[in-house]
């Protein structure tokens, strides 16, 4: 969550920086070497803290089972990563691939539609004056405060009423909702979409929907990408909702599937290997989407700052 919040504030800060000509840079250089070194050390420690478990996972995934316990946990032994991946994919007719596909659907489609909805809501709240606007916004803000985990059980009971539990929709529909996305889109739209521009579009004869999709969305791109990323990661890592909703193995998300395997390790020890390799593979899509979208996000940033 902290990453997304920091990305929120960055665009605004950078924008201001680009407007003030050269005022900030020399001041920064005057920092004492001590402050610099200590900052580097603190960051270095945190980097290690976050990367060592991933390194461990990567190393563990390349080992075969007999070497797993007997060799140095942080360094490679015989390299059998591809055999391991092959075994994982072959296990139970490739159910793991099915889970990855499910997660991609829940997270990809869910985040895409969720972002459009959040963007439209936020834009409407920022740019239209209507009675109850602040009330709606405050309710949405309240929604940010309620953790998704707390909603899982009530959602289950509601979905039970309409016989939708244990379906694709039971996980997909709740994933579309992102109060935080609405909040972010509103703040960003009011700061970056000038009223004059919307006015101009209206004068040129564009309808409200067309204005939104052709003019405003382009200026909101950095915020929308942030919402998408945040939502994608949140859905991909969401575990509790699938746990409560789903019974059918072919609908599982990858997090739930791996958890289910992990809970059976006592009885079926071979699952331990699959959990490790599966966990490693399951973070790859997150890394890819971050790297790809980050670049796009920077492009969008400069586009948004031109007035």
């Amino acid at each position: 969550m902290s990453t997304s919040i920091s990305t929120v504030t960055t665009p605004a800060r950078r924008k201001r920086g680009s407007r003030t000509p050269q005022g900030v840079a020399p001041k920064a250089q005057r920092e004492s070497p001590f402050a610099r070194v200590s900052a580097m050390i603190v960051m270095g420690v945190f980097t290690l803290y976050f990367l060592v478990p991933i390194w461990w996972l990567l190393v563990a995934a390349t080992k075969d089972r007999s070497q797993f316990n007997t060799t140095n946990p942080l360094w490679f032994a015989d390299f059998s990563l591809f055999t391991n991946i092959g075994n994982l994919i072959a296990y139970r007719d490739g159910v793991y691939l099915k889970w990855m596909l499910n997660s991609a659907l829940y997270a990809g489609l869910g985040a895409a539609i969720g972002t459009i909805i959040a963007g439209m809501c936020g834009y409407a709240l920022a740019k239209y004056n209507f009675p109850g606007r602040e009330l709606i916004f405050n309710v949405v803000l309240g929604g940010v405060l309620v953790p998704a985990t707390a909603l899982a059980l009530p959602l289950f009971l509601i979905f039970s009423q309409i016989s939708l539990t244990n379906t694709f929709w039971s996980v997909f529909l709740p994933s579309l909702v992102s109060p935080f996305g609405v909040y972010l889109a509103r703040i960003y739209a009011s700061a970056s979409v000038p009223d004059e521009l919307i006015e101009a579009a209206r004068l040129d004869g564009a309808g409200e929907v067309r204005t939104f999709f052709t003019v405003s969305v382009r200026m909101m791109v950095p915020a929308l990408i942030t919402v998408f990323l945040f939502q994608f990661v949140a859905i991909w890592n969401n575990f509790f909702l699938p746990l409560i909703m789903l019974r059918d193995e072919t609908l599982f998300s990858v997090t739930l599937g791996l958890y289910a395997w992990n809970s059976q390790v006592n009885q079926i020890p071979v699952l331990r290997d699959y959990v490790l390799i599966g966990a490693l593979l399951s973070i790859i899509p997150l890394i890819i989407i971050f790297l790809l979208l980050q670049r796009f996000w920077q492009n969008g940033l400069s586009a948004g700052s031109v007035k």
Partner: peptide, 22 residues
């Protein structure tokens, strides 16, 4: 149908489902 082992969440699911009648 499947899920994690009993104490890993399936028992809790059973109780939820009993409550929801499904």
């Amino acid at each position: 149908q499947t899920g994690p082992n009993g104490n890993g969440g399936t028992y809790q699911n059973f109780f939820n489902q009993l409550k929801a009648g499904n």
